[in-house]
Design a protein around this nucleic acid. Structure first.
Lengths: 197, 197, 197, 197
DNA sequence: AATGAATGAGTATTCATTCAT
DNA sequence: AATGAATGAATACTCATTCAT
């Protein structure tokens, strides 16, 4: 009867759901969506196959929620960062944001690989495409605010360009792996954008 | 049995193989690799399922060859262009190369979607990863030569950055479709790179 | 804890059990036994899945009790009717019984569909087969008593034939639905049986 | 190239399809549609699970074709009988038809059980319901022709009634099995219908 | 008594690949 | 070289039943 019980159930359910989401993210990114079976996810999340369906209606819905979860973290981190730095000079903000991005790229390589691959496969899984599109828009809007601070003439397009640049870097990082000069490119970008802006 | 017949057979085989590759490309990029069955490819290429295996050992090998075909078109176009323009001023070469790239992006949308999609999903299918890696290197080397002509301090890294930028634009184009301001970004890039380089 | 409470609980349980039986009957006859899940029954009976097992050991036992309930209604109605009419001339009794049957057929279509459906599928579920067999016998015995009153030479076989006829009519009614000339057939049967008997 | 090859293939395919239909009929009738798995059918028909789908699109379609096959035989036999006897007195025709029906009931018990159970389960498998309905109509039309010969006032309704009677007998036969006095009921029916008609 | 999360056996269907013709 | 029937491993999803709370 006490609210605590309900709340505890919610938390348990939440944590179970999280277990599944984390297991799925890891497997989807490592082996790809199609090479990951529900059985494997269940095993990794330490519950039964059937229980997956208590939390998610289908494999596709699970995929959607994995993507949303991943990017909610990213965009929240970005929002926090912008909030904290709002008194600093724009160039500093820009630099920090780029650094934050590169950090995330290294630390959440799996999530990026998954999301980008979904972004590209438009028609294979339509529901996910929509999810990815709306997330991508939020990220671009974050960048746009920074370019506005920097006094850019066309913050929207600059944001798109920088977004494209970082996506491309992600792809190259995925193709070339640890041989890829991530840090040096990071420096080049910061230099290019803060030199004469 | 005459040489002519053999040659004709070779041509037929060549064209049959091409039929298959084109059918596969179209289906893979429209529906994704995993949602395309060998039966569908056979139907689209107007031969039997069994006959696919006369030309390709497996679906995975077929995929590899589709990717190779796709990139080959891109690199050949680039080589031709560089050859034709080798007397022109570097900035003109650069501009033409970027324009050629954007043109191809619009006109060969399918090919790029597939290629990038595969580049990103890469880790799931090792043999394709290797194919993509080696061909991607060739593209970067092409760009590198142009940056060398332009007198860049670090042509290799500049090539990587420009490659990343164009890949990212491809992805955004795929995500946003026809709403995406392809032409304007093209102009921004040319301006940025030729203004003070 | 008072006896009253216990009695109330009994009643509650009785009514709960009834709710479940009615919900099951409705779903079984609408969608079929195999297409009805315990979850659906629970939802329709407004209790939880787990609670079903407080009242019934298994889905199969639930099915058995649904069938028993269905036939019991039929036999009870018949017993009442025979009781009320025991002073009337046999032909009147016969006529009323047939009329009562046709009325029930129209008004309790669901119940008959289920019951007959189960009677036919019988061999797949042995426990239901036994239930159906013993209850069907009771119905035949009722008819047998009427044919004895009518002075039939072979009341047992006549009862079987009339039982068969009415079952067959039920089936045709189920197959053809409202297009089926139920009333006219009812008249034909009464005429046939009371003309020269 | 010769027609023979194609024809042979057709025959092989025909016989394979027949193997499957016969195996299915036997299993569906014995264990019921839902308790028969595609694996069991494949095993009984001595081919692989996957091959079932070369001949039938789904389990439901297989069921449909089982029913159609079974009744095509029955109605064809009825047509033949009527044709052969068209010179005989109507009462003889009637007698032979009823006898033929009872024979089929004994010898094709499985088919009847299956069909009746499908007839009753309207909404569970809609496509099959339609199949059963059209078959049932053909059987009734056959009976109608005989009642017309017998000079009945209302051959359509008489046909329905006799159809109902025989369906009901089928059901009772299924419920009571070998204890059921099939022969004696057969005689009663023939006597009743030919006595004063 | 009541709940509903957890279980895992069970099943229809798909599909790359093989091979006899 | 071409065919397409045959194969059977693989897999998402369902659902009756159990049981801790």
């Amino acid at each position: 009867m006490s609210p605590r019980t309900k709340a505890q159930l919610e938390m348990l359910k939440g944590s179970r759901k999280n277990q599944i989401l984390l297991a799925s993210l890891s497997l989807f990114s490592e082996k790809g969506y199609y090479h990951t079976s529900m059985k494997e996810i269940a095993d990794k999340a330490k519950l039964s196959k059937g229980s997956l369906y208590t939390y998610f209606d289908s494999k596709e819905q699970l995929l959607n929620e994995v993507v949303v979860m991943g990017f909610k973290e990213a965009t929240n981190a970005g929002d926090d960062l912008l909030m904290q730095m709002k008194e600093l000079p724009p160039k500093e903000i820009f630099k920090s944001l780029v650094q934050a991005y590169f950090l995330m790229l290294k630390e959440q390589k799996e999530l990026w690989r998954l999301t980008l691959s979904l972004a590209v496969q438009v028609s294979a899984i339509p529901s996910v495409h929509n999810t990815v599109m709306s997330i991508y828009n939020r990220l671009i809007e974050q960048l746009e605010r920074v370019f506005t601070l920097l006094g850019s003439d066309n913050p929207k397009k600059e944001a798109l360009l920088l977004g494209a640049l970082t996506d491309g870097i992600s792809i190259q990082f995925m193709i070339f792996g640890d041989r890829y000069p991530l840090e040096e490119l990071q420096e080049m970008i910061i230099t290019k954008y803060t030199k004469n802006a």
